[in-house]
Design a protein around this nucleic acid. Structure first.
Lengths: 222, 222, 222, 222
DNA sequence: GATGAATGAGTGTTCATTCAT
DNA sequence: TATGAATGAACACTCATTCAT
């Protein structure tokens, strides 16, 4: 059995077990046993139980980030890119439900604290997500296909929160709507939210300089 | 020291400790010591460490649900109610950051599995959130202030996911945008997303996956 | 509710619970709850959990001892008294299976050590059993209806061990033979064991003065 | 220190401690400390405190069963085999008083319930004892050296109960008669009980519950 | 690299008992 | 007498990690 085989066996087993009974309920002994390796082997390859988790995290995130980058690389307009991202996002998490479940459900709090800090590789990956959202939005803003009454980065953070939250609640079975429908809704509503302002006559006037006056007024009109 | 005092001391201490070092890193011995009671007293009142957590969960959720119900009770139009909810939501989690942090960050996976199941009191509370979202949206749909191209319940689930996700990422410090700004953005974007359609004839159509031609033309208008 | 009623309720409940799940698996909280009294009440009446057990022990033993004494008081011959005792013993334990189960199965080791010592009331009751066995045997020896090649007291101890062991194994379900049959066998075999010596010609010779020479020789004749 | 050494050290220490202060009064921490191993090692080897106990049980029983089988293998007549068994039994428990004390005194009730059930290895061992008793009796019945007015299996169960009870009461110090004397008595009385009938015509009769008239007349002959 | 026996600090939980009311 | 909230010492068991082979 080559190293690679052993490593893959460990990762595959860990992924399955984490998904089925949660990170903290899975023991290293179990992973070793079901992967058919000795417990010490886990430590040779990954250093610690957390190390296994972080490797899975990295791999899943890598694929996710690469996917988004691929979409951006197509060079489509911002609006279209946002559409394509939405479809990609839900396809990705649907097809890799196990991996995403782990990421979204199990990320241990202590890892959050330790590894979401400052310049950890994990934190960097997470920040890249926001950056990619920002690039999508910035492109749309630049090409006029998306209208942002708020700064790009802030909007990107909020948008990312929305996708994250809807996906996580779905993963936790707190949402009944099936994934494909969720994808369609997210696409439709966000395209509208980031589309031209609601009042037709407002469109030609001030396309996207600032929050359109009409909604702005209404918001605090009470 | 009355019963209530003791119980409150335990809950307050547990809340503080859970928030500061996470649920699993907090020991029952610590809670007891810092609350000034015997360890057995924890079990007398709450049955288990999980029981303490779930009590905190229930109390925080109770206040949250009551707040939303209060807003609905005002009888304002759907659109205005959604606005009010948005402000309430971010005020609530800002003011009770500790409690919400616990709920959003620490909810242990094993509790998720055990207590989000079917008819648990916790699950019921969570489902009530979706129902309240649905009531807001249904009101807006009825009075014409909100426009939903998708079913009320599904939209409510997605909307809830968005609020949840943005809030959780903020709690995890993965979002830099400050809470008030996050609140304003969520309000603004969602009001627009649920506002009157950009072009009336687009509503009945399936959510367009391809970017609509009109905005596409307008790009680079900046 | 009078004291007596409360005490009886506690004893009855404890007896039932001890029998169904064992002494150590039964908690004072359970006893109190199911008896419908406060936990403190247990301690007012019996001082401790062990106190409840010992009270049950005493009551069961009292009935048992009184039964044997009643049989002895009839003044029948030793052999007949032994017969009557056998029947009484198995009737008693059959009819009060719950109580006897507790005595025979659950007597906690620490109580054994503490309360079987020297002059404890419990130890005295146990010693009275042996004394009553001795009285039966002594009567039989005196009236010639029982033949003991060994001292009365030693034979009594062994006899008691036999009854005790057969009964305990039956209580533990390690013996399949039903109680009535067990009773008949014990009676039959022990009457024979304590009957006139096997060799017919030995009977008229030396009825019961000393161990008959024949069996004595045979024992080590190998 | 080899595996075997460690395991043996744990078993030897546990045996000593169980015998001296009882199973439930012995803590796993004590066993580990006195055996010179880490507490985790106990669990590595035996899985639980109960596991240690059951291992001791198995080993003691194994030796006991092997001893009886050895006696049967000699091929002696049934009566002689019963004699030999009696001597073996009391020798065995005398020489291994510690182990037998544990088995006879400490077997925890919860283990009784869990491990005496149906097909457990422990139950099987206990049932083998009865089977070996049956083989002894069956041999004696076949070769005419033992006389059983009751079925072999039932007699075996009762006989086993007798040996068990006398031994247990001795272990609990409720019997004063020393072991060797106890052995002689058991041998003598049971050989007689299973010997040829006193009066040939009494054999076919049902075990007389009423005292036989002849001895009855003889009473008060002292 | 691979092993797996050994580790031992750490933890949630139990429960008989007490005592102020 | 009766209560039951409070107690706190005690304990079995866990499990990520190490290290000699």
């Amino acid at each position: 059995m080559s190293d690679t085989t052993r490593s893959r066996a460990i990762l595959a087993t860990a992924s399955r077990l984490f998904a089925s009974r949660g990170y903290s309920r899975t023991t290293t002994a179990e992973i070793a046993r079901e992967a058919g390796v000795a417990e010490g082997t886990l430590y040779h390859h990954f250093g610690s139980k957390d190390g296994i988790f972080l490797t899975l995290f990295d791999e899943t995130m890598e694929g996710y980030l690469a996917g988004i980058e691929g979409i951006l690389a197509r060079g489509a307009a911002g609006r279209e890119t946002l559409s394509a991202f939405t479809r990609f996002h839900f396809d990705y998490v649907s097809l890799r439900k196990e991996q995403y479940l782990i990421l979204l459900r199990d990320f241990p709090v202590h890892l959050t604290v330790e590894h979401f800090a400052g310049g950890s590789p994990q934190r960097k990956k997470l920040d890249r997500v926001t950056k990619l959202f920002s690039r999508i939005l910035a492109r749309g803003k630049a090409d006029g296909t998306l209208h942002l009454p708020f700064p790009v980065r802030e909007t990107a953070e909020m948008l990312r929160g929305s996708f994250y939250g809807a996906t996580r609640l779905k993963m936790l079975d707190l949402i009944q709507t099936p994934f494909p429908r969720l994808a369609r809704m997210m696409e439709s509503y966000w395209l509208k939210a980031l589309g031209p302002s609601q009042t037709p006559r407002a469109i030609p006037a001030a396309p996207s300089i600032a929050p359109s006056p009409a909604p702005g007024r209404r918001r605090r009109s009470r």
